[in-house]
């Protein structure tokens, strides 16, 4: 066996080249082969992605930076920055913990009575609470200035009416949502119960008639 034969060396070289190509393809989206020059490859190796990725982001930051410079020039940058950064974190660091905690708390039901017994099986009920509570909370989140009468003065100046009806309307919608959900849960329980009873009734042999 001649390990140094030219064909063998060529085969090894080919295998190395294929491995490198595969590695580049796997790490750089495969587009590198089409880009000319070692420069691109070097940028990509240091940067961690296709040079086009860098160009696109630079264009993005250029436009955003220009808009930000207009904010500074307009003299409103302090308030703008506070609201902008606040917006970036309000969901992830405020709303999400709130609704996640509420969900966990409700599912653990620390205040719940003990179950009547192992023979009673509850239908899954959490979504019948999540949906109306979520929708009602969402309506409050979007329309709280009206519902909680936060913009009363400017609203009255503009519209000529006050915002008093909105709290009642929100409560009405909330009530309808919870009532609808309760009704849906009741129907679900009922259909589940009749499904359990149903087949037995049908298969019960007819009682022999007494003459």
């Amino acid at each position: 066996m001649n390990a140094r034969s030219p064909s063998r060396i060529r085969a090894v070289r080919r295998r190395i080249a294929t491995t490198v190509r595969r590695w580049i393809a796997a790490h750089h989206g495969g587009d590198l082969r089409r880009l000319p020059g070692a420069v691109c490859r070097r940028i990509a190796a240091h940067y961690g992605a296709d040079p086009l990725h860098l160009l696109a982001l630079l264009a993005c930051f250029a436009l955003a930076g220009y808009a930000a410079s207009r904010v500074v020039a307009a003299g409103i940058w302090v308030g703008f920055a506070v609201w902008f950064i606040g917006s970036a974190i309000v969901h992830d660091l405020v709303l999400y913990p709130l609704y996640a905690l509420a969900d966990v708390a409700v599912q653990r039901r620390p205040w719940a009575r003990r179950r009547p017994g192992p023979h009673v099986r509850w239908r899954p009920w959490i979504n019948y609470l999540r949906v109306p509570a979520g929708l009602s909370g969402l309506l409050l989140l979007v329309w709280f200035p009206l519902i909680l009468r936060q913009s009363e003065e400017t609203y009255r100046k503009a519209v000529g009416l006050d915002t008093s009806p909105y709290l009642g309307r929100w409560l009405l919608v909330t009530g309808v949502l919870f009532a609808g959900s309760a009704l849906a849960y009741a129907l679900r329980l009922r259909s589940a119960a009749s499904a359990r009873r149903g087949p037995r009734l049908r298969h019960r042999p007819e009682r022999p008639r007494r003459e």
């Binding site: 207009r70 308030g79 703008f80 609201w83 503009a158």
Partner: peptide
């Protein structure tokens, strides 16, 4: 909702 807690709606909404 006419809830002007920021005094700069037009430019802020445009630049944002």
């Amino acid at each position: 909702q006419l809830f002007y807690v920021f005094p700069f709606f037009y430019p802020a909404h445009l630049y944002g």
